[in-house]
């Protein structure tokens, strides 16, 4: 009897193998990085799913009138940020009320959006897809549109072994592509790996950074993944209360997610509403523009001061967070 079971299970695995063409993708945790937050067991990476997610990321089919793709506001050449646009614009040229953030190292993210309204990377794409000023579309209709495409039905079959497209499959494949957007090869990383050295100015900037900035922009991700009030005055037209909108907790008034500073050289303009165009403006605001309030981060209460020289060194250091390989990565770019 046992023998029979054995033979049958061999036969079964052969049959299975004949149908499953997926090839696993090995997610590498960069040296010194913590354990990812994303549970890969629930959505194991395969080359087919990543490629499908990549195609979806660059496809305006996700928007109501097929004009806006994810990449419209998250361009690969600027670390998936929306350079030059303070507030991102979507369908029909309508404006949102926040700046499109850079996308990298999302496997380590625990909450998404500036106010953490989204609790899981899989669910993130639903927000811009459904927002009337971004893509103005619904996941149900996206699935319907994709199901009419022979190309997509084949790609979904190759990726999931099932040509019936579901919302779950769309979201999971988008996650797979986004998870591969790992930025860990900047000059800073190379210095940490002992492959090169900072210049004296960069090193001085690094020390200033560690002393004044790293409690929130914590290495190696350059964010503590928390919500902080960094003392910005309240924009009179946007009146954005930040994290409080989600939690209804007054202690969260004016708190926003601490963004990573990786590739910060290219992710301007800065802040949740893109109010600052340059890093110098950002640093100046930390020096003289901090608005005192009940929810202000304690670290900022005393204010920070830098000399002109120090400012310049700090910026030199921030430029070492630029990951050129990431910015020019062919596998992250639009599929041809």
């Amino acid at each position: 009897m046992r023998k029979l079971i054995f033979v049958f299970s061999i036969l079964l695995s052969l049959v299975l193998a004949a149908f499953v063409t997926e090839t696993n993708f090995q997610f590498v945790i960069p040296k010194g990085f913590p354990k990812p937050v994303y549970d890969f067991k629930k959505n194991p990476l395969t080359h087919e799913k990543i490629e499908l997610g990549r195609k979806l990321f660059y496809d305006p089919v996700l928007s109501k009138d097929s004009t806006i793709s994810c990449a419209t506001c998250h361009s690969p050449f600027t670390a998936f940020a929306h350079t030059d646009h303070a507030l991102s614009h979507g369908i029909g040229g309508k404006f949102g009320n926040r700046n499109a953030p850079s996308l990298s190292n999302l496997a380590w993210g625990s909450a998404f959006m500036w106010d953490g309204a989204v609790n899981h990377l899989d669910m993130q794409a639903l927000a811009p897809m459904s927002n009337p000023v971004e893509m103005d579309e619904s996941i149900a209709h996206v699935v319907n549109k994709l199901s009419h495409s022979h190309t997509y039905r084949k790609l979904f079959f190759d990726a999931f072994g099932d040509s019936t497209i579901t919302g779950e499959f769309v979201l999971k494949s988008l996650s797979q592509f986004m998870l591969t957007l790992v930025s860990a090869d900047s000059k800073y990383d190379k210095v940490k790996r002992g492959e090169t050295d900072f210049t004296p100015n960069e090193l001085h900037g690094y020390k200033l950074f560690q002393k004044n900035c790293s409690s929130c922009h914590t290495e190696p991700l350059f964010t503590n993944e928390k919500f902080e009030n960094n003392g910005l005055y309240v924009d009179a037209t946007l009146k954005d209360s930040g994290r409080m909108k989600v939690t209804h907790n007054p202690d969260d008034y004016l708190k926003f997610k601490v963004p990573s500073l990786r590739n910060v050289q290219y992710t301007y303009p800065y802040m949740h509403d893109g109010r600052f165009k340059t890093l110098t403006q950002v640093i100046n605001n930390y020096m003289g523009g901090i608005q005192q309030s009940a929810t202000l981060s304690p670290q900022l209460k005393k204010g920070i001061s830098f000399s002109e020289m120090e400012k310049s060194d700090l910026i030199s250091f921030l430029y070492t967070l630029t990951d050129t390989a990431f910015l020019h990565s062919k596998i992250h770019n639009s599929p041809r």
Partner: peptide, 12 residues
């Protein structure tokens, strides 16, 4: 599946 319209998109 969020396709069923029983999932909030603006806040998970």
């Amino acid at each position: 599946d969020p396709i069923n319209g029983m999932y909030w998109t603006w806040q998970s």
